[in-house]
């Protein structure tokens, strides 16, 4: 035809959901740097993993060993989810009513899958703590937990490789923010986690 051929205009996804990163409790615990991407009030907040990747959301599977209800007026639940490398501290409050109800119904101990947003807190004694605000929590089977360990181990190894290559912006920032951290620790962590799963 007479109009010049043009590239097929395709509407890009107007909204990109932040992917849920896979990270072991042992690595998440080491996070100390949190930042906002953009000036806007609604800009997402990220926690920078020591292996050099930002995360706004994480997906974790482990054993819910403990849950406690706290607060009277502003009731919320706290819980501990254990993976092969350590413990995730999770919480669901009245701003996450659905997550709170889900958490309230689960009997410990149980394998749970959690989608949530990590953030850093400073405790009164000055210690920094990473806690995960739950978006959803469901009980799952052991198979799912094992698949998650494989998945997370692979992601961790890939992040370490990328950090060594040092090509990404986040990897460079991680070097600045975590000068004392040796990524070999996380490599061993992934390796140990894999070894804990029965062949």
């Amino acid at each position: 035809m007479s109009t010049p051929s043009r590239d097929m205009p395709r509407r890009e996804g107007s909204f990109e959901r932040e992917p849920a990163r896979r990270v072991f409790a042992g690595e998440l615990r080491e996070c100390r740097y949190q930042f906002k991407d953009g000036e806007d009030e609604k800009s997402p907040t990220f926690v920078l993993l020591p292996t050099g990747e930002r995360c706004n959301r994480i997906f974790l599977v482990g054993t819910l060993t403990e849950k406690t209800r706290q607060g009277e007026q502003n009731m919320f639940y706290r819980g501990r989810v254990v993976d092969p490398t350590g413990t995730f501290f999770i919480m669901a409050g009245s701003y996450q009513p659905e997550a709170m109800q889900q958490l309230a119904r689960i009997e410990t101990p149980a394998f749970v899958a959690v989608v949530g947003k990590p953030s850093l807190y400073q405790k009164p004694d000055g210690a920094v703590m990473v806690s995960v605000r739950v978006e959803s929590i469901t009980t799952v089977d052991k198979d799912t937990r094992d698949i998650w360990v494989l998945d997370t181990a692979e992601r961790t190894l890939d992040r370490i490789a990328a950090a060594k290559a040092g090509t990404t912006k986040d990897a460079a920032t991680a070097k600045e923010q975590y000068p004392t951290v040796d990524t070999a620790v996380f490599h061993r962590m992934a390796s140990d986690a894999l070894a804990q799963i029965k062949m």
Binding site: I147, A153, L194, M199
Partner: peptide, 29 residues
């Protein structure tokens, strides 16, 4: 950007993947 799913199944634990990752973790250490 939306996947209209024809078939969907739950993933099973794959021990060959486990072995592959053990090698990957061991090999690069």
């Amino acid at each position: 950007n939306r996947l209209l799913v024809n078939s969907c199944e739950q993933k099973k634990f794959d021990s060959s993947e486990h072995v592959r990752l053990l090698n990957k973790a061991g090999g690069a250490a």
